[in-house]
Design a binder for these strands. Structure first.
Lengths: 212, 212, 212, 212
DNA sequence: GATGAATGAGTTTTCATTCAT
DNA sequence: GATGAATGAAAACTCATTCAT
């Protein structure tokens, strides 16, 4: 069962309280990690910001690494659930892609802090901050790429798209472009306005995929 | 004087020796940083691996940050010089792009360790490991993007390419795709063979840019 | 709140315990500093001698400098409070001077270790061990000299003493002599017995100040 | 033979050159020690300021301690030779004392830098910066005190001074007062003008020693 | 004989983690 | 069950001293 996805009503008051505390700790940690980086944040600092004693923090997370893992994995799950939904809902493939870009953009906008951590980790850019974390994230990411590839595959089968490349490669290409454009938008808003992102990307892809 | 660009013959034996030592230190550091991450590598460890005393390491680099900076900036310069040459030489635009992808691929293959550090830093994924480093790298990267954009611009002016998007946006799109494919190739060689990379990418781009 | 001036009964057991620990650390530090000198004593050594972990030492004193400052300032305050009382209580001026010499002597005897540090610092002999420390001590010292000078001033106004020199200069002269004699007594007890000190000094001063 | 006191003409060119180099090193060291304190000056810094290689510095002084010793002892010798001469020349005792105060004042004025080091060391205020140094200096100092005491002794024998205290104690008293006044003059020139020093001190002493 | 590159022991300080209260 | 005082391993960095050139 994905972390933290559980019917809330079944939890006792005690358990709900615990979950809330855990969330507060994770929020404090997220904020500090994004501001200052994993190694420049101390457990004391996190406990202080979350307004718990250091011992209490250690009751919830075995050690600093454990806390970090939980943080990254939960956010990653949130993103991938959102993306899967975004892709699943519409009928038309172009509409699926459009939806996926929009939802990813919203997530980036709302979780910019987290996003940077996620990328550093999932794309192997993090100096192996945590052994194995990349692998777990990479796996989640690959599942998503497969889903995206299946969209291309479907559209090709139905002759909606030309088979100009492997579906998986197209998925890689599209996702990397979306990331690049979203980063561009978030870091250089004057270079690229948010609403332009889907159009700019889809222009390129549809010009290539749909014979005129 | 540009970093490391100097006629080797003009150096005294002493100077050449120094340069060699410096290189050994940087190599040891690079290997350790990539294996374990900046914060998980101690100066003692680097000195040990390079087989120098800790004091000697500090003769060459004022502090750990200085060492890291040197590492990243030198590699970044090497890459960008190579890319600029690759783009500059051919006449035909498709050939320029082809050349750029090939050279970048070679650099990735030969410097995989470094590449990961470079990306983390230049794409703002590094939690501000070093104040200002990202800015310096970002600037170098932007200069390169402008060069790449000028290739699209030129080809559009000459009607070789359709104006399906801003040249700068196309540069961003292309570069992000190249990175994604190269990472795919290096991390999942079974998913994508090296020689296929240029073709796969150029297929998409030329289908989109050149009206059939 | 003045340093260390607080009704002891108002402190909780916890607080009293803390104060005791702090004292133990300061005592260990004082002993080591006097034996080996500030720069020849490491924080580890102090922690070891006080039988605390190094981390605990740093809980009480932000850094080595902070520890040293506390040491010197606390003792200086103790001395000056004692001297001010000694001078304030008697009516007769000769009695005031007598009292001051006696009290200072007792303090020297009981805190010989500290005294040497105090002198080095307050008389500018410390090579600026700590920026500003001398200034702070010098200021306390000047306040004391002014008090001592006022004794001479008063006695002169009442014609008890001849005005053979500026009151402030007499204060300087007297205090330096007292220090010299006390050091002589403490380092060469065979040259000068403790009980002789006040007499020896007051002989000189009264012969000069009181016309026969 | 006291350090460095030797007929210069008897030295070969080589030897004279060496002595000059040695002096340059000591001068550089003196300046740095006084500015920053023994422990805050590195041997490299001294070598650098004196414009010699570090190895050359070590040819002249076995180690840092040795260099420091040489520095302090030479200066101490210079002072004591000057004082002995000042006391020896005049016939009259008051004139001797006057001369001694004047010469000591000139030395303080010209060597303020050194003076502070000398005091810290010779008065045991230096945290035993160097084991044994204080003893050596103390011995020189005691020789001087004996000389000064003999002046009082002589004058008492000749009934020029009243025997109000032990001659040795008077020597201690006078010297401590001279030091105090000279420090006052050098650190607070507005509190006490240089030329006033001898008068202020002798006023007190002659009032006490010479019956009116 | 002079040089200065190389050495590594030693210093201050931080912070993850434990455990008695 | 929560707390936070105490711990001590480990890190970055300095500098007196040596010795090959």
């Amino acid at each position: 069962m994905p972390n933290g996805v559980m019917k809330v009503e079944t939890l006792s008051r005690r358990e709900r309280e615990k979950l809330r505390q855990r969330q507060e700790m994770l929020n404090a940690a997220l904020q500090l990690f994004t501001e200052k980086g994993y190694h420049n944040v101390s457990m004391h600092e996190i406990a202080g910001k979350a307004e718990f004693a250091i011992g209490t923090l250690y009751k919830f997370f075995r050690n600093k690494e454990d806390l970090y893992r939980a943080l990254v994995l939960e956010q990653s799950d949130k993103l991938h659930v959102a993306l899967a939904t975004a892709i699943g809902e519409p009928e038309d493939e172009i509409e699926k892609l459009n939806n996926y870009i929009r939802v990813k953009g919203e997530f980036f906008r709302d979780n910019y802090a987290m996003i940077r951590i996620y990328f550093a980790e999932s794309h192997g850019l993090s100096f192996n901050l945590m052994a194995g974390l990349d692998a777990e994230l990479r796996e989640r990411y690959e599942r998503f790429l497969a889903l995206l590839a299946s969209v291309f595959e479907g559209a090709m089968k139905r002759k909606r798209f030309r088979r100009i490349a492997e579906p998986y490669h197209l998925a890689v290409a599209l996702d990397s472009m979306v990331n690049a454009f979203l980063f561009l938008w978030l870091t250089n808003p004057d270079r690229l306005h948010g609403p332009e992102v889907p159009g700019a990307i889809l222009d390129i892809f549809s010009k290539a995929l749909i014979s005129s």
